[in-house]
């Protein structure tokens, strides 16, 4: 059940108490990544040239969660993203899937930034969104999957957080969420504004209609580059010395019949001994 939204920050709460109707503002952080299905490996090197960019699958779950909340409580969804120049095109995927507007930082060499640097920029972009109530992340980005960003940004913004969330309800001035851990689930009440990272597959992201795709280009977009933002980005704290596909020398023998299969299983998979 969803209790009428009362506003996550003091100003809003006061406005609501005075009878002013306030929108719930939900920010979603989405990262554009190469389509992993299309990466080819040559000499153990992943070839990224020409691989189209898209948003990570879990980030689409995060957006869907935000849109479902906005539809339930009367709200607005802002997508924030840090990426290279292709982001301006990629962002349309999110705007077509019912995000209302976007705030982006676009820089050429963005791939070289590490989590600490990106977190700083992302937090700054979120601050551009006035009076937000909830910030939603994915549990991990599709390519790096390190699961740091939501926690880092929560710390920079000084907000409470809950990760691995599989359901979200808004109850007045708090979010009631379910966090799914390996051995237990927790039902938590988190005061708004808050940062939530959603677990993969908590919902089925909507597929935008053609007319929504066409309208996406016209939704509000705010674009920054590093010079526009009043922040010092520190040096990268993490260095990568190599990133190669693992060496593999599998035999690649085709088995033509069940009896050949049985033979292989008996000789190669004799089991627990």
């Amino acid at each position: 059940m969803i209790v009428p939204y009362l506003g996550g920050n003091d100003e809003k709460r006061e406005a609501v108490l005075k009878g002013v109707r306030e929108l719930m503002k939900i920010v979603v952080a989405m990262k554009q990544i190469p389509d992993l299905q299309q990466i080819r490996i040559r000499d153990r090197k992943p070839i990224l040239d020409g691989v189209p960019l898209t948003f990570g699958k879990i980030d689409k779950n995060a957006l869907e969660a935000a849109v479902q909340i906005k539809e339930a409580v009367n709200g607005e969804v802002v997508v924030v993203s840090v990426g290279n120049e292709e982001l301006e095109d990629t962002i349309k995927e999110a705007l077509a899937a019912d995000a209302d507007s976007s705030v982006m930082l676009i820089e050429d060499d963005i791939e070289k930034m590490d989590s600490a640097q990106t977190a700083k920029v992302l937090a700054e972009l979120i601050k551009q969104v006035e009076r937000y109530d909830l910030v939603i992340f994915g549990e991990g980005s599709g390519d790096n999957y390190s699961g740091q960003m939501g926690s880092r940004v929560a710390e920079i913004l000084g907000l409470p957080q809950a990760g691995y969330v599989t359901s979200i309800e808004i109850d007045g001035i708090a979010a009631i969420v379910k966090r799914s851990l390996e051995d237990q689930e927790e039902i938590l009440e988190v005061k708004l504004p808050a940062v939530i990272s959603v677990a993969a597959d908590l919902n089925e992201p909507r597929i935008p209609s053609v007319s929504k795709v066409l309208k996406a280009g016209k939704k509000p977009k705010e674009i920054f580059n590093l010079d526009d933002l009043d922040i010092e980005v520190c040096e990268a704290l993490v260095a990568t010395s190599s990133s190669l596909a693992p060496a593999s020398n599998r035999k690649g023998i085709e088995l033509k019949s069940v009896s050949e299969l049985v033979e292989v299983l008996k000789s190669e998979a004799s089991g627990g001994n």
Partner: peptide
């Protein structure tokens, strides 16, 4: 890295 397509060797500075 890359969703598992590669293995990265990384260190913290």
């Amino acid at each position: 890295a890359l969703g598992g397509a590669a293995i990265a060797v990384q260190s913290i500075k």
